[in-house]
Design a protein around this nucleic acid. Structure first.
Lengths: 441, 441
DNA sequence: CGAGATGTTGAGATATTTCAACGTGCGTGG
DNA sequence: CCACGCACGTTGAAATATCTCAACATCTCG
């Protein structure tokens, strides 16, 4: 439908982040189709540097054997400065890698965490930087893409969001390429143990969805990550279909989904239920409720899930001590309210086919944001009954409508896989405007 | 339906505040039907003292000529201590009167605002007190009912809520009595100017809904009232049917409804709209949204309205400086979310007749809480189209269903008046459980 | 007094539900 | 390994709730 505008304009138009992400999607298609590892990396780097208006940049990939990072593309650094830079920026990279979340330093001189190493970075002319991990949609990290600035620099939250999406798409592409062959220009960086561990679940990697979520709402410095992980008292694993908050319960814990799908619902007298929301990876559960009020609804898992638990008091403390982080969490809870509003609109004013389409689009956008997007194909464990309970329909009717959508070649949802066949037609049918999911300020 | 349990049990059962208020309703029927002013006042006082487990208590009414307060009932004070007590507790009473909101002092010795006068109160043996204004449902104050305690004493928030409801019902009754005749036991208290002014709108009276709202979520001390009024930057008056926040606007103001009705809605592509919420007297508008995010919906007035405006920053400050008050405001916003959840359930899972019934019950309960309840009759300016837009129905269908309800002698909504004819049958039909409106912790 | 907003009513159209039957895949216990 | 039960999905036909269109009544306000 909408025509693809030229590159520079796409990337710099500040207005609508989500459209931007759609553009980036198509963009990455063009950038990344069918090239070798290094060429891909370089194109990604160029695009991102242009987008960030950065002075330097590099892309580093984990060696296949997990032995360390290799620079596969770099821009702007003098050859001599290279290895040193890597070492001093390493802290940032390693945090990004370990925690699978973007890390920023607006000014390395005032950033206590980097200050010890700031010297060599400064010599290379760097004053600010951001490192975004290259995480595939299956959750594996394959490297880091970083941009650097000569002056203290603040990247808008929205820009970082787009960057994260872009990085993920890049990661997916790069992973599909033939294993890279340690080509001519690639400089080997001495092995970083934590980076290498990351292929398997380390303690920190477990909280990655939490960090990433917060990073979507505010800049995250490397030294702030421990604050966040310090919030989480414990992680709890649940089987599928387990009710873990019952209506009327009052407990003081807030939760964040670290893995799996859940649903928040209310059960009616006649035994039917209305599903309010499906929290997925990185979504908070009951932040508002816990902070202010007892639960007036139930939560259950849909798939086996892992949840991080923190107390409302702990959140209060973080709001006081690290207002930016605290606000980011509350903000994110406010987005859930926006989702609920849209849900109400959906159920109240749209017919079944639009409802379903709209809902499926929402799911896929949210999965994109959560880093679970794989460009059209999504793992989605919802049964037709779940859909019905959420959309105020009968599962039978959901079935029929789903068939229609399938036959019209718009979406299909079969065997736990959601496949978006025609995004633009579907969006038009559903009158889907993803602004309400927009997570920037 | 439910049988009326004996007095003591009603009043002390702590479980469900809203049921309690219903009980109180019937209770006040029994207590107050067809008696003289003094007898009424004394029965109210007895009931309330029993409820609060208080050591002393009194009821004071404004003289018809507005010249001052008269004690029409008192319990526990020695005759000699009477006038002095009135003077020193006067600050509390006067605040309650002026601001039409309950005022509490858990311990007069630590309460800076009362400390100067605490002596004479202390001599009378008083250490803690609460003053609840007697506000009729048309908003006029006719007096104060107070209870006093020998020891520092904390009244649960829920108890104060019930007290406020009870006081209002009492006020309505008292106002219907023949003007009281300054009877035998009544001691005249020297004229209080601020109290007398209150019959007409004073500056402070304007913010009454704000104070009352906050008082529903936390204890409100007399000295905290200026903090709240200091939050409000300005009040703005709007005509009926005026859109004052448009989708996509971003402004940093939060609002509180001081008078009138409004609605929060989203407009769809096809021009239809879904109404999300009807904020009424004392409801906040956009607290969450303003605090955390830009508006993703519109607000419009329905009737001519007055709104108090305060900035999100100001709210932040108050959250920091007076956490209790700040939390109360946020808490109240969280209740709005619970209302939204119930709204979604309503639209998603109930048929038209249940939806309407449920909605009308919600409205009337909320009006009760807001102090607009008059026991079955409510002023309600919503058109059938408003109802339709809120409930996901056609105005035509709303019309038909409304007729059904009228013919079944359950509710009627005609000429702007909502009349609940059979509360229990209606509640049963709608499967209405008012817990979600419960405002206690 | 007329115009526009609101409420009322009827008849036919439509979306969605209900009931009922059947298919398919998957895990469990014999 | 098969058989069975169970959760989930599929399909048809009839029932019904709600909508649409269209006409008219009533009220309010300038």
């Amino acid at each position: 439908m909408r025509k693809l505008p030229p590159l520079a304009k796409i990337i710099q138009r500040p207005s609508n982040k989500l459209e931007l992400s759609v553009d980036l999607h198509e963009l990455s298609d063009r950038l990344l189709r069918g090239e070798g590892t290094e060429a891909l990396a370089e194109r990604m780097l160029d695009a991102l540097m242009e987008y960030h208006d950065a002075d330097f940049g590099d892309v580093q990939l984990l060696a296949p054997d997990g032995s360390g990072l290799e620079i596969v593309a770099q821009r702007g650094f003098e050859r001599a400065a290279l290895s040193k830079t890597q070492n001093s920026a390493g802290r940032s990279h390693s945090q990004a890698l370990k925690n699978k979340c973007p890390v920023v330093s607006e000014d390395i001189q005032s950033d206590t965490d980097l200050a010890p190493n700031a010297n060599s970075l400064a010599k290379a002319g760097v004053r600010a930087l951001q490192s975004t991990p290259l995480v595939k949609s299956d959750g594996h990290v394959i490297g880091v893409i970083s941009t650097y600035f000569r002056k203290p620099h603040r990247l808008p939250v929205g820009t970082m969001q787009v960057t994260a999406l872009f990085a993920q798409q890049g990661a997916n592409r790069l992973a599909n390429e033939p294993p890279h062959h340690g080509g001519s220009g690639a400089a080997r960086v001495p092995g970083r143990r934590d980076g290498a561990d990351e292929h398997h679940h380390s303690y920190d990697g477990e909280y990655a969805p939490f960090f990433r979520k917060v990073a979507q709402f505010c800049q995250l410095r490397a030294d702030e990550i421990p604050v966040l992980s310090g919030m989480i008292r414990e992680t709890r694993a649940f089987d599928a279909d387990t009710e873990f908050v019952r209506e009327g319960d009052s407990q003081d814990d807030c939760l964040i989904v670290l893995d799996g799908w859940g649903c928040k619902y209310k059960t009616l007298e006649d035994g039917t239920r209305q599903i309010i929301h499906f929290p997925i990876l990185g979504d908070f559960v009951g932040v508002h409720a816990r902070l202010f009020k007892a639960a007036d609804h139930s939560f259950a898992t849909i798939t086996p899930s892992k949840l991080g638990v923190f107390s409302a008091e702990r959140l209060q403390e973080v709001i006081q001590s690290h207002p930016r982080l605290g606000q980011a969490i509350l903000w994110s809870a406010a987005r859930d309210e926006a989702i609920m509003v849209e849900h109400l609109v959906n159920v109240g004013r749209r017919n079944a086919i639009q409802r379903l389409s709209h809902f499926l689009l929402e799911i896929c956008k949210r999965m994109d944001f959560a880093g679970l997007g794989a460009g059209g194909d999504y793992r989605c464990p919802l049964t037709q009954e779940h859909l019905a309970d959420a959309l105020g329909l009968t599962s039978i009717h959901v079935n029929r409508v789903l068939r229609q959508l399938r036959e019209r070649n718009l979406v299909s949802l079969e065997k736990g896989t959601l496949h978006i066949k025609d995004l633009s037609k579907l969006s038009e049918l559903a009158a889907f405007d993803p602004d309400y999911l927009d997570q920037s300020n």
